[in-house]
């Protein structure tokens, strides 16, 4: 084992030196950064998109297709991870038959692990902090157009709040809306993720943008003023719900949440 260690370290050093030889001549010289993009955005960003957060104006206004692509990458990766974890739960452990696994004395199933997570601190703090975290996530998501924040950030904070709920509740706790359906269980989360992703795809088509402009013109003819930034707010909300429910679904599956 020692020889393999030394060979690995030597290989690592050789690769580092080669990468340095390639990357360093690009990185180290002092080249001035061009200012044209910043000047153009500072002059025309607010007028063309309606968002005063220039970073949101870029990735939700000028380059919304990039954000659509990133949402698709996130969907593919989370779906792959969820299916791998689900499939791995069903296979027997290394070197055993399929039926023997449940009879072993030290089988650590999901219910066992969840019982070990329930200490007093978890029960009293995690479930009670969750609504505050969800509120903060909703705030970050909804104000993404005028202060730092946005869909992804708010979505990840909402996912953290849902993980708090999943860790801190006993069976059948917060959010049960039916005999077989919980708001924060795997089935409801996957449905929310699918519908939010459909909303994002619908909002990104040029057809829907012209429909939105027609809606704005019609509303202003009636007398109701719909600001141009509400398109960015709608996109933020759908991205936030999609990212939040997707990440929360993966983490709830990791914690062993198959029982509804």
């Amino acid at each position: 084992m020692r020889r393999a260690d030394i060979a690995g370290t030597l290989a690592g050093i050789v690769v580092a030196i080669l990468s340095c030889a390639v990357v360093a001549p690009v990185l180290l010289p002092d080249v001035p950064w061009p200012e044209a993009a910043r000047d153009l955005l500072a002059a025309r960003g607010l007028g063309e998109t309606g968002a005063s957060n220039l970073v949101s104006a870029i990735y939700l206004g000028y380059r919304a297709f990039d954000t659509l692509g990133e949402t698709i990458v996130l969907l593919a990766a989370l779906a792959g991870a969820v299916s791998l974890i689900g499939a791995a739960r069903d296979t027997p452990l290394h070197g055993e038959e399929a039926g023997v696994a449940a009879d072993r004395g030290d089988y650590r199933g999901p219910a066992d692990k969840r019982r070990r997570l329930h200490t007093e601190i978890m029960d009293s703090i995690a479930g009670k902090l969750a609504p505050i975290v969800l509120l903060f996530g909703a705030y970050v998501m909804l104000y993404g157009h005028s202060s730092p924040g946005g869909g992804f950030q708010g979505g990840v904070v909402i996912a953290s709040g849902v993980i708090f709920i999943a860790i801190g509740r006993r069976s059948g706790g917060i959010g049960r809306i039916g005999p077989r359906l919980t708001v924060f269980g795997p089935r409801a989360l996957s449905r929310m993720e699918a519908s939010a992703f459909a909303a994002i795809v619908l909002l990104s088509f040029p057809v829907s943008i012209s429909a939105f402009e027609g809606l704005r013109a019609g509303a202003s003819a009636v007398g109701v003023s719909v600001p141009a930034v509400s398109y960015i707010v709608a996109l933020n909300v759908s991205i936030g719900l999609k990212v939040g429910s997707g990440v929360a679904l993966m983490c709830v599956m990791m914690l062993g949440g198959e029982s509804e």
Binding site: A37, R38, L41, V55, A57, I58, Y59, E70, G150, F152
Partner: peptide
């Protein structure tokens, strides 16, 4: 500050 690299780095 230039906002273009920040938007790319979010992705």
């Amino acid at each position: 500050v230039d906002p273009v690299p920040q938007a790319l780095m979010l992705t």
